[in-house]
Simulated assay, not measured.
Amino acid sequence: MNLWVLKMVNSINTNASSLLGVRNLQRTNSLQAKTQNEISTGKKVDSVKDNAAILSIAQLLKADVAGLNSVKGSLDRALSTTDVALAAGDGVSDLLLELKEKAVTASDPGLDDVSRQALNDEFGALRDQITSIVDNAEFNGTNAVKSGGDDIVAVTGADGQGVIQIDAQDLSLGGPNVTLSASQGISSVADAQAAVSAIEDSISNLSSSLSQLGAGASQLQETKDFTESLSNATEEGIGNLVDADLGATSAAFEANQVKQALGIQALSISNQAPGAILSLFR
């Protein structure tokens, strides 16, 4: 017994086994602190100390997500502006059909003057509604259907590069698409026939304009869908890089608790060992 004590404990100033126990316990405590941080934050990489390279990559990806969120906002604004323009176009189209009906009726040579005048008054009121619709077809300061209207533009890249542009479509009276003039009337057979011709041309032109706006709206929606998918995939990628696996973390937490308890017990035993040296002096 005394020989064993002499071999294992030969100094009361330096207890090698105790020092080893302290190091092991400190290592366990450090692991447990890291595990507790993962549980409280939900992240396995929460600071540069955890993993500088991974955190740097995650920050760059977060910047991409922020850029994509801005892109989605730009696309949403462009889509809303396009929707307003299309709604205005539909309204103008409906009015043109009503105007044609009035003009065709007024082109009847046998129509009496009172009826013709009533038709002309109705025609003028409908015609002026086109101007009202076009002037009020604005969203967020952009009107794509008035004379000299604004093109609809949306950013498509997370770095601010790349755009989708939908050209403005002038749907104002007397413009390149709605050739019916702002003063056109149907007070005579000749005026009514001229109005019918102008309305038919306007309907044809309007159909082409609405097709362009509709194609632009489809492109915007497809780009928005892709951007949302890309943003979601990027966020998932960030999660894979920095988020903790709470199932594994919970198991590690339990294991570290056991290690801590055993480490404390081992350290206690190591600290008692120098007391055995007293037996050498009995």
Rank of each mutant, 00 (worst) to 15 (best):
A53N: 07
L262Q: 11
A168K: 03
S132C: 03
L210H: 09
T156K: 06
S202F: 15
F281Q: 13
L79N: 03
Q212E: 13
A106N: 07
N10W: 10
P109F: 14
K72N: 14
L75W: 11
N271S: 10
D94Y: 11
G67P: 01
D151N: 15
E236S: 14
M1P: 15
R27W: 11
A53T: 08
S218M: 00
G162L: 05
S211R: 09
Q26V: 07
A88L: 00
N140I: 01
L99W: 00
E254C: 02
N24P: 00
S207P: 04
S74H: 08
Q32V: 09
I152D: 00
T131G: 07
L61V: 00
E235N: 11
G148I: 09
T156S: 13
S132R: 01
A194T: 07
T227D: 11
F226R: 10
A53D: 10
V196F: 14
L171M: 11
L19F: 12
K34N: 14
V189I: 10
G175T: 12
S229D: 14
D128A: 12
V104Q: 09
K100T: 04
V155P: 00
A192F: 03
I269G: 11
L61N: 01
I12E: 14
G91H: 05
A244V: 04
T227P: 11
A53C: 02
Q184H: 11
Q36E: 15
S188W: 13
S204R: 06
I277V: 03
S187V: 14
G175E: 12
V189E: 15
Q265N: 15
E236K: 12
S11H: 05
T105G: 08
G148T: 12
L230S: 15
Q221A: 08
S231M: 15
T28K: 02
I57G: 02
Q32G: 09
I277Y: 01
S181V: 05
A192T: 01
T81D: 06
D225V: 14
A266Y: 14
D108G: 05
K146H: 03
K49W: 05
S18G: 15
L180S: 06
D167P: 00
G141Q: 08
S11T: 04
S270R: 08
I264G: 07
E222I: 06
I152L: 02
S11K: 03
S115V: 04
L213T: 02
S47G: 12
L99A: 01
Q265M: 06
N29T: 12
L173T: 06
D245F: 14
A87L: 04
L262A: 13
A261H: 07
T14N: 10
G110E: 15
I203L: 11
L278C: 02
W4K: 10
G110V: 12
A198V: 11
R77A: 09
A118E: 08
D108Q: 07
G42D: 10
A255D: 15
A244G: 06
I238D: 09
G124P: 09
F123V: 03
E122Q: 15
N232G: 11
G239L: 01
N256G: 14
R282F: 02
